[in-house]
Nucleic acid binder design. Structure first.
Length: 767
DNA sequence: GGGCGTTGCGTTTTT
DNA sequence: CGCAACGCCC
């Protein structure tokens, strides 16, 4: 995305900083506490800023940059500042810009690890066996390539799935291991000892395709530095100040990369929180942050412990929880916001009741005029979302799911981009394979075989091979005709590309290729959404000057900011909540097996448990003022009803800071229609909590008829419906259906796919 | 080559 | 139980 910030042309960031400094009102150090100030002002030597949740970590980072510039210590292009996500990088750019006066282009080396490494690699591509215009493969491309290798090696794809090998490669790359360095034992663990060979073959194939996968971006950049001392020296002297965000998330390759660069300057500042390390399962090494002072001798460790986010009880609860971890550096957070409300704890009969309780509590907050945007529900696993979503749909509570499949990961977006990519870079075989038969052109495996064969024999891209075979009888007449038409279209679009705007061209390609029509003819409930996404893609492309610029952006930035308007409750996993904050946070599903997740315990033992506990810590510390933890005794998983004990984390909660709630009433709000059958176990949580080991006290209440649904609390006022009985409608979640009953603004709909559901009118669209 | 039925699997996710 | 991926059959 282009930065559309206003800029003062011709003025360097440093000059702007100095100008900003000279204005007395804009003293950027104002308002920092003494530790933050220390972290900003200790410019020389290695610094580890242990920044607890909500202690102003990002502020320190950006102020430090401003300070370096203002002191005239270095120019903006001498500062390397790396983050993990594009979101974090963008936020830093914007905030540095604001603080210093607006120039974002002035920080050329502020970006994600990957963005920075790509930039470096493009300059020195030949040194690692690539050409500067190399393409970046996404996971699909990667798997497609590996499948080909497995087939070529006659390896049973059933027993040795390509995805598994892909993750193995990834793990090696995360550790900074090139094929020759992979320990023999590990290399042999796949396909009876073929793992190592396959890795080598895969890397070789990538070079032939002039491509890198995500792991390579770091690995090859690391190799570039290791094998070319002059290049390394150049960057060592360039980067006089190094800043790293979320250091607890770095993997081995990133650590090695940083350490090499840091040998040029000792001015390394890493910011992170060992208590928030929750990505161990994808290669992050908590150990990197735990042994920082050994890796960087003479390191100064600064603890930020003043929390500006949460009230006392919330912070005390989080602290007590995380205190059960042994592998941590240790911090004591404090707040001066006040004690606030206690953390609430509620035991529920099952996940439906849990969802119902959450929705009722939210409705009460709504009556108290709390904005829905300030409320979040954080779950351990997305399977928990179903019950909650169902409930919200029933009562008409607007919500948004954060995370899930990201924009660029959607099939239709990947397909569209593959078309553009093939037009602009015809040598991109993997993208060509993706769209050759999408939409269906009668070009299946059999038809394509000669094309592959010829391409491999001649060492040419698939497109060229296809074109060449048009002059022969190799292909079946139908296939030949089909390919002829497609190649003709490719030529046509290639010509158009010279003459028109890239967005216009994109539209034409999607229409003429039949791709748009494919989804228009698709009757699945997702199809209209996919067409919308394609429109959104075209709209988004307008922000770029050219197709080439757009494609480069897309390969690295896997997400796009979907401006979600309207007041909505946020629903997301604990993982995607890291870094966010909300006034009120619900934490459902604290049950043994789910949270901590059984699999984390089985696969990683104590380390796994501690990571789960950090996840709990992250969850609790998202709340500014109110937090409700809950657990259900029964939950439907894989279609089976299963009962579970409350999480051990609940035992670890500090009693003085937690208040046990009744399950079915909240804040004096008790529905008069509440059936009495619930009274019997209303105090489940309360009783258990007072028992010695209260998680042992899970009593086997008998299963009652479950639902008291929204019907009891229907809005009685007369409501004129815009819909008619029998009318066909579309619903975002359930797809198409026909209206079978209307009561006020509640509709009962017989969905084609999802069966009969009661939904609220505002969620339904006319077709 | 495409459609349909069967089988297997089921935590978290960024670049 | 629900979905996705694969394989078989038309």
């Amino acid at each position: 995305m282009k930065d559309k910030m206003s800029q003062n042309a011709g003025e360097s960031l440093t000059q702007q900083a100095q100008r900003a400094m000279s204005r007395p009102a804009s003293n950027y150090l104002e308002g920092l506490n003494s530790e933050q100030r220390d972290a900003v002002e200790t410019l020389h030597g290695p610094v580890l800023v242990l920044a607890g949740a909500g202690t102003g970590k990002t502020r320190v980072l950006i102020t430090r940059i401003a300070h370096i510039l203002a002191m005239g210590e270095a120019s903006s292009f001498n500062i390397l500042a790396v983050t993990f996500t594009n979101k974090a990088a963008l936020e830093m750019k914007n905030r540095v810009g604001q603080l210093v006066g607006g120039a974002v282009e002035g920080m050329p080396w502020l970006g994600t690890f990957h963005a920075v490494c790509v930039k470096i690699l493009r300059r020195h591509a030949e040194l690692v066996g690539l050409k500067s215009g190399f393409t970046i493969l996404d996971t699909d491309d990667q798997v497609r390539l590996i499948k080909q290798l497995l087939k070529a090696g006659n390896i049973d794809e059933k027993r040795w799935p390509a995805r598994h090998l892909a993750s193995l490669f990834d793990r090696w790359k995360n550790k900074g291991l090139v094929p020759s360095k992979v320990p023999a034992g590990e290399a042999h663990s796949f396909a009876n000892g073929k793992g190592g060979e396959l890795y080598e073959a895969y890397q070789k194939r990538l070079k032939e395709l002039n491509a890198v996968d995500f792991g390579d971006i770091l690995l090859e950049c690391l190799r570039l530095f290791q094998e070319n001392n002059d290049v390394l020296k150049e960057y060592q002297s360039r980067f006089r100040y190094i800043l790293v965000d979320e250091y607890q998330d770095t993997n081995v390759a990133q650590y090695l990369w940083l350490r090499l660069l840091a040998q040029g300057t000792s001015n390394v500042c890493c910011v992170g929180d060992d208590d928030q390390s929750i990505y161990g399962w994808r290669g992050a090494e908590v150990d990197n942050i735990l042994r920082f002072d050994k890796d960087f001798p003479g390191a100064k460790v600064i603890r930020l412990e003043q929390n500006y986010r949460s009230t006392g009880h919330i912070l005390a609860t989080a602290s007590a929880l995380i205190d059960n971890n042994t592998e941590r550096l240790g911090k004591t957070l404090h707040t001066n916001i006040g004690e606030g409300d206690k953390v609430m704890l509620r035991g529920c009969w099952d996940d439906e009741e849990e969802a119902r309780n959450i929705s009722e509590q939210i409705e009460q907050l709504q009556r108290d005029k709390l904005n829905l945007n300030d409320i979040a529900i954080l779950v351990r696993a997305s399977s928990q979302m179903r019950a909650i979503e169902d409930r919200f749909v029933t009562v008409g509570l607007p919500y948004r799911v954060i995370g899930g499949p990201r924009f660029y990961e959607r099939k239709e977006i990947k397909d569209a981009i593959a078309y553009f990519e093939v037009i602009f870079n015809s040598a991109n075989d993997l993208k060509f394979e993706r769209i050759i038969n999408t939409p269906k052109r009668g070009l299946g495996e059999a038809s394509l075989r000669p094309i592959y064969h010829y391409a491999r024999a001649k060492g040419i891209p698939l497109v060229d091979s296809a074109r060449a075979l048009l002059d022969t009888e190799e292909l079946r007449p139908a296939a030949r005709n089909s390919i002829f038409k497609l190649m003709d279209q490719f030529d046509h679009w290639g010509t158009m590309a010279q003459m028109m705007d890239h967005t216009e061209l994109a539209q034409i390609i999607l229409d003429e290729s039949g791709y748009t029509a494919m989804w228009q003819n698709d009757k699945s409930p997702q199809a209209p959404g996919r067409l919308d996404n394609l429109k959104e893609l075209i709209r988004f492309m307008e922000e770029f000057d050219s197709m080439a610029g757009f494609l480069e952006h897309v390969s690295l930035v896997m997400d796009v900011d979907t401006g979600n308007a309207g007041e909505r409750v946020s629903l997301m996993t604990l993982h995607s909540a890291k870094g966010l904050e909300f006034d009120t946070v619900f934490l459902p599903g604290w049950e043994e097996g789910l949270f901590p997740h059984q699999r984390a315990l089985d696969e990683s033992g104590k380390a796994g448990l501690e990571e789960e506990r950090r996840l709990a810590y992250v969850g609790v510390t998202r709340a500014k003022r109110r937090s409700t933890i809950s657990f259900a005794q029964n939950r439907r998983t894989h279609g089976q009803w299963q009962s579970a004990a409350p999480s051990r984390f609940i035992d670890e909660l500090p009693q003085d800071h937690v208040e046990v709630m009744d399950s079915t009433s909240y804040g004096g709000y008790t529905q008069s229609t509440q059936p009495n059958r619930f009274k019997a176990r209303e105090n489940v949580a309360k009783d258990m909590y007072s028992e010695p080991r209260w998680n042992k006290g899970a009593r086997s209440g008998k299963r009652t008829v479950t639902t008291i649904d929204g019907q009891a609390r229907q809005i009685k006022k007369v409501h004129k419906s815009d819909f008619a009985l029998g009318e066909r409608i579309f619903h975002q979640k359930f797809g198409y259906g026909a209206i079978t009953a209307i009561e006020g603004d509640k509709l009962t709909i017989d969905f084609e796919k999802a069966g009969e559901k009661r939904v609220v009118e505002s969620f339904v669209e006319k077709t």
